[in-house]
Simulated assay, not measured.
Amino acid sequence: MKKFKFTISGDEYDVHLQDIEENIATIEVNGTKYEVEVKREIKASKTPKLVRKPVVQQPGEGQIKKSQSSGVAIKAPLPGTILKINVAVGDEVKEGQNLLVMEAMKMENQVLAEKAGQVSAIKVKEGDAVLQDDVLIEIS
């Protein structure tokens, strides 16, 4: 905060005023920290002091969880509505095969398989509204 140099009885002192809270000042004198009481009138603050409880994290909170799926998730390229689903669970699909048709931005878009495999789950049904990157179909 502020730095001062004092000479007391011929001895020099480097004083760093770090913080003052109410009538307690935290200072550092020649590298040693002290908390000292300041004799002064404490002004009442009109601004309330924000007091928060410490944040306690639950076990596992804040850790990235990897999905255990070994397959490919086909995601919506744009927000839109599912018009037609061309496959069923258990169907074998080839890379580039048309899986479903969705309407986005007043155009029909073909959603294609990114790799060959078997359809393990269909996460949407005809008429569903989806957002970009929503999982539509899983292929294993």
Results as ranks from 00 to 15, higher is better:
M1G: 15
M1D: 13
F4I: 08
F4M: 10
F4A: 07
K5T: 15
I8W: 05
G10A: 06
G10S: 10
G10K: 05
D11L: 06
D11G: 01
Y13R: 01
V15K: 03
V15R: 03
V15M: 13
V15W: 04
L17I: 06
D19R: 08
E22D: 14
N23P: 08
T26S: 12
E28G: 00
E28F: 00
G31M: 02
T32E: 07
Y34W: 09
Y34E: 12
E37N: 10
R40A: 12
E41G: 09
I42C: 08
K46D: 15
K46M: 10
P48E: 09
P48K: 03
K49E: 15
P54L: 02
V56E: 13
Q57I: 11
Q57C: 06
P59N: 10
E61Q: 14
G62C: 03
G62A: 02
I64K: 12
K65Y: 04
S69W: 03
S69Y: 08
V72E: 06
A73F: 04
A73T: 08
A76N: 07
A76H: 04
P79L: 02
I82K: 00
I82H: 01
L83K: 04
I85V: 14
D91V: 03
V93G: 11
K94R: 08
G96V: 05
Q97H: 05
N98F: 00
N98V: 12
L99H: 11
V101H: 08
M102G: 10
M105C: 02
M105T: 05
M105G: 04
K106F: 13
K106T: 13
M107T: 10
N109L: 13
Q110A: 07
V111A: 07
V111G: 11
L112W: 00
L112A: 07
L112T: 11
A113P: 09
E114P: 10
Q118K: 11
Q118I: 14
S120E: 12
A121M: 03
A121T: 10
I122H: 03
I122C: 06
K123Q: 13
K123C: 13
V124L: 04
E126V: 14
D128F: 01
D128R: 00
L131C: 06
D134Q: 06
D134N: 11
D134R: 00
V135W: 06
V135N: 12
V135H: 07
V135E: 13
L136K: 02
I137K: 00
I139S: 06
